[in-house]
Every structure is written in C-alpha cells, then in structure tokens.
Write a protein that binds this DNA or RNA. Structure first.
Length: 431
RNA sequence: GCCGUCGUAGCUCAGUGGUAGAGCACUCGGCUGUUAACCGAGCGGUCGCCGGUUCGAAUCCGGUCGACGGCGCCA
C-alpha cells in the first residue's frame, strides 16, 4: 500500500513527462490568478511549478489560502511546458495539505541581521541548501582521503585543562569545583597517540574565545587535523596538497550544480587545482611584498592586505614555509639549516587567507620547556605531554585545516558564517 | 581590543525642528497561464532605551544597549 514518491530533480530531468506522479514538499512561492493558483513546490532536490484550478482540485479554496512554507502532498500529471519555470510543471489532481503554515517571517527583502535571527528558517533557502550540500561533500572528502592514505580516526577530549596556544583565547567551563576549557586543538593529544596508532586524523569542533570581528573567524568551528610519526616536512606538504585536491575533486563530482550556482558559473579556477602547489619561503614572500610596495619587514607576520596580495598572485593555493620562530607556535621544529626559522607552513588561498597551518614538531624537551615558560604556561599540566619526548621520541609532523574555510573558499562566500548551519561568533550564539 | 556605520510598521527603507510615510507581507474584493503575477481597498507604530536643549524632538546634544562592517589575533 505504500505510495511511490517522486522527487523534483527527476521531473526537471524529464524522467516522468506524461505520467502521473506523487510529490511532497514545501510551498516555495504562490501566484494566485483567481480561478487558478500556481504553487512552486520545493523538496530537497529542487523546485517545480504545480498548476491547480477550481476545475481540477476539489479543495481549491483551501489551496488558494495556503501561505508559503506550508507542507503539502500533490498528485498530478507531469507536463513539459515552456511557460513553467524549469520547463516542467505538475497539473495537480489532488493537493493534500499536511500543514498550513503561519505567516513566514522571511520575505524577499531581508537584512543580514534578520536572516541570522531566523537562521533555523533561512537554512531552507536555495543558497543555504547548496552550501550545506557542499559542506557534506567536503566532510566526506576529508574522511575518504585520510582513510585512503591509511590514516586512522582518533578522538581527543573536548574538555581539557590545556591552554595550548595562549590562555586568553579559551572558553572556560565549570568542571564541578574546578575550571577546564573547551579544546582549541586535537594536536597535543594526537602527539601522544601516534606512538601507538601511527598515522591519525580527526574532524572535530574547536573553540576560540577570541573576539575576532572578521569574515574568516568563528568561535566554534570544525577542525580537520592530522598527525603522523616519522612524517617529514616535504611529505607533510604533499599530504596537505593531496587532501585539498581530493576534496576539490570530490565536491566537483558530487555538487557540480551547487558550485555553479554559488560561484556564478566560474568553475575554471577549481578545475585548475592539481598538484603541485607553488611553494615559497617566508623570506621570498617578504621580498615579493616589498617589491609590490608593502613596507613589510622581515619578522612581521602577514596581515589581511598582505595575504590578499600574495594569494592573488597565484593560480593555485600557495605554501609559505620557513617562518621566523618568533611568530610561530612553541611546538614547531627549528629548521636544521637555520635555527632562527621553523619547519612550519601556511597554505593560503584567495578570499580566505590561511586555509591550513602545519609543521614538523619540536622533539627536544629542553626547547619545549623553555618555550612554554616564555609563554607563561604552568609546566605541571604539560608533564604528560612532555612524556612524548621522554619515551621513544620520534620526528613527527601534522597540520590543521579550518573546514569552514575550505567551504568558504570553494563556494566563494563573503562570510565564513554561511559555511556552517548555526554559526557562533563573538556577538551571536542564537538560535 | 581599536575604528566606523546603522537602530522608524512583521520585512526593506524614506523622513534632518512643526499632526508618523512608501513598497513588500497579511486580510478582503477582482481576474483561467502566472513567473518576486497584476489591479483596488483595508489592517498595521512607545521612531532601541535613559536623560537634556526647545513653545515643540524620529529629527539637535549627552549617555547607554544592540546589530552590522573594517583592522588586529588565528584555522
């Protein structure tokens, strides 16, 4: 007795023309011509026009009164018709009202603020459906790539006593009579786990309590991280490059239509993404910037204008390596040929800036302790971590990717909050 | 943390010292091929909040709260 349900996509592909189908979904828009009503029906696969008239459906007056976002089931014949948006329409014989919606708060005119206040409804919009479809594909692509490369998935705690990269950027959480923090990285736990598991990765939420007011920061974001024993710096770059290329390929396969809509048909940039990515050193980047007229000095970290200038010069993501150790984290390994620099890299892309940050890890315990003291950290809570340098320490490396940032880059979003369904920023944690 | 912009109808906005406006949404009426349908009517307000100047404040001044945008910090 179960009914066969057709989705909108198949109708727009012409698979059911001339036959009777059953559809279910939400009313995207209505046009009322008196004795005829046109409904645009949305389901997760698309939007199609439904034609109803007082002569063809019994409950015409009920249909006429429906407001947008009402949920309905429709039975009718599929017709090819140039007058219909998309070229096909359903000539309804039955319309069952599942739920007649209240007045919908989102209209044609809307501000950023209103859409964020009504985020739970805005995620029904075509744009958000497209982005969230890409997002699903990106997560799938990351898992797929690391598993294909033999990496195991490893989870670290979200509640942690560790500061990791400066205590002011952590969200404190009451832990009975103590205070712990929401994790801002998986890395330190991962460095302990590689001695047993070998190559590992994760995709997990990370939290930053920085009041960053930019289009590239969230306080809660999804962090894809990887760590491997014996992994050397050059192999680390290749791993990052391979992951980005795999994700691009996967998303182009699974979400071509979504990407075309989001990128306004400009697919040539993404089609060009293949190894190898250009690699420049920090020193070379400074030289390039100075030649471009920036008064960047050796030892300065790059700001937004510098990152934009650099990324716009390349057709692909660009690796910047060998930063001075002063502007990078305590755990990065110094370069063997020049110990004022670290074996660390940033992978930078247009519109976003830093997409991935990674490094070979410092293995010498004295150096780590010294750097932690400089940062004012309490060494006692790091003793377990320092054990990774006491019991069979090995060279190792890893990187971290901001998942929303790769989504922002792929979809050419102008703000990272649209890369996640319910964004958390310094000023906003509702809905 | 710093700098800037904006808070007026459910939504988007106009109104810069003298009785609070428009478009959309919604309700009612009309229309059998609409494409953000159209036409007519109706409904709709503590002008963010507190104080000050003034005969009179949405409008000028001070404060405050909120949102958004830019820089810094980062993934």
């Amino acid at each position: 007795m179960s009914k066969e349900w057709t989705n909108v996509e198949e109708i727009l592909e012409g698979k059911h023309t001339g036959s009777e189908v059953n559809l279910r979904g939400w009313i995207h828009r209505t046009r009322n011509i008196g004795n005829m009503v046109f409904l645009n029906l949305r389901d997760p696969t698309g939007v199609v026009q439904i034609m109803t008239s007082k002569d063809t459906v019994d409950n015409f007056s009920e249909v006429k009164s429906l407001l947008i976002e009402s949920s309905i089931k429709v039975k009718g014949e599929v017709a090819e018709d140039k007058r219909a948006p998309g070229g096909y329409e359903i000539r309804a014989s039955e319309v069952e009202v599942v739920h007649a919606a209240d007045v919908y708060p989102i209209q044609e005119d809307h501000s950023v603020e209103h859409l964020l206040d009504n985020r739970h409804l805005w995620i029904r919009s075509t744009k958000m459906i497209d982005i969230l479809s890409v997002r699903s594909s990106v997560f799938g692509g990351i898992h797929e790539y690391f598993r294909k490369e033999g990496y195991k998935e490893f989870q670290s705690p979200i509640l942690t006593p560790l500061a990791c990269e400066g205590g002011s950027t952590l969200f404190p959480v009451e832990y009975f009579d103590d205070k712990v923090y929401l994790a801002q990285s998986w890395q330190l736990y991962a460095e302990a786990a590689i001695f047993g598991l070998g190559n590992i990765y994760t995709i997990a939420p990370s939290f930053r309590a920085e009041k960053s007011r930019t289009p590239r920061h969230l306080t809660e974001y999804w962090h894809a991280e990887v760590e491997g024993p014996w992994l050397e710096f050059e192999a680390l770059l290749e791993l990052a490059e391979g992951m980005v290329c795999h994700v691009v390929e996967k998303v182009m396969n699974e979400c071509e239509d979504e990407l075309k809509r989001l990128r306004e048909e400009d697919m040539s940039y993404l089609k060009n993404i293949a190894p190898p990515f250009p690699r420049i050193t920090y020193q070379e980047a400074v030289d390039i910037l100075q030649k471009e007229g920036f008064n960047t000095k050796y030892g300065d970290d790059f700001g937004t204008p510098e990152e934009k200038a650099l990324t716009d010069m390349f057709e692909k993501p660009v690796f910047v390596t060998h930063y001075p150790k002063e502007i990078k984290a305590f755990y990065m390994k110094r370069a063997p040929e020049d110990d004022t620099k670290v074996l660390g890299f940033d992978l930078m892309v247009p519109n976003v800036g830093e997409l991935i940050g990674g490094s070979a890890r410092e293995t010498e315990i004295d150096s780590l302790e010294a750097r932690l003291k400089e940062e004012g950290e309490d060494l006692s809570i790091y003793q377990w971590f320092l054990d990774t340098r006491r019991f069979g320490s090995v060279p190792h490396a890893g990187f971290g990717l901001g998942v929303e940032r790769i989504i922002m880059w792929l979809c050419t979003l102008d703000h990272i909050r649209d890369a996640i369904p319910f964004p958390r920023t310094p000023n906003r944690y509702r809905p």
